[in-house]
């Protein structure tokens, strides 16, 4: 155990030296704030190296105090830079919500299409809701209603196909599955757009 400890210790000291060096080089307050998290992770890493039950039990309180300290520091930074005063125009004005939705929503929609049917619709709908919540929310009910109406029509048409041409059942099932997917997606995405705009 001690040997592993020593090996880990050397690796950890290397990381710590790098972290401290970065502190020396960095002058921007925000970046230094972020680097403190690196330092605190190194501290926890040192404890984790011991690798006993007791050490495991010590990591959680250590994590709690370092995270709370980081939050306190972040709060001080906000007050110090006067960032609290310029309140965001939208509630969810977070940088990651500008870049992430396109990727996450497309993943969800693609997965929903693969699932198809009601559950697929729900998953894809969630993706669309997510995208709309983050990106913007013009209430374009007409468009969604149109899509929803065509989906409804396609679903009915699928019924007719399966009743009149039973040999083409596969096509009918596919149409019905796709249609219900689009329908549920459209219905769910209504939730994402309903934000009570002034002209509605």
């Amino acid at each position: 155990m001690i040997d592993t400890f020593h090996t880990g210790m050397i690796a950890a000291s290397l990381c710590i030296i790098i972290a401290f060096f970065s502190f020396l080089k960095e002058t921007d307050d925000l970046h230094r704030l972020l680097l403190t998290d690196l330092a605190s992770v190194m501290a926890l890493f040192l404890i984790a190296l011991v690798g006993t039950d007791l050490a495991e039990a010590l990591i959680l309180p250590g994590l709690v105090v370092t995270i709370s300290k980081l939050m306190a520091l972040a709060e001080i930074y906000l007050v110090k830079e006067g960032l609290q005063k310029n309140s965001p125009s939208r509630i969810l004005d977070i940088e990651v919500l500008q870049s992430a939705p396109a990727i996450l929503a497309s993943i969800l929609v693609i997965y929903g299409i693969i699932l198809s049917g009601f559950s697929g619709g729900a998953v894809a709908g969630l993706g669309v809701i997510f995208y709309l919540v983050c990106k913007g929310h013009q209430e374009r009910f007409e468009l969604i209603e149109t899509v929803s109406g065509y989906a409804w029509v396609a679903w009915i048409a699928a019924f007719f196909i399966i009743l009149i041409f039973p040999s083409q059942w596969f096509l009918a099932v596919m149409i019905a599955g796709g249609a219900i997917l689009i329908k549920v997606t459209a219905k769910l995405s209504l939730i994402g757009t309903m934000r009570g705009e002034s002209d509605v």
């Binding site: 250590g62 980081l70 110090k80």
Partner: peptide, 25 residues
């Protein structure tokens, strides 16, 4: 000053926890 002190104090967690880890080991 509070911010700068906070950063120093945060870095100080490394030797603090490090010493506890060495004692435990």
């Amino acid at each position: 000053a509070a911010f700068q002190y906070g950063i120093v104090a945060m870095i100080a967690t490394v030797p603090l926890f490090g010493s506890a880890a060495i004692i435990l080991a």
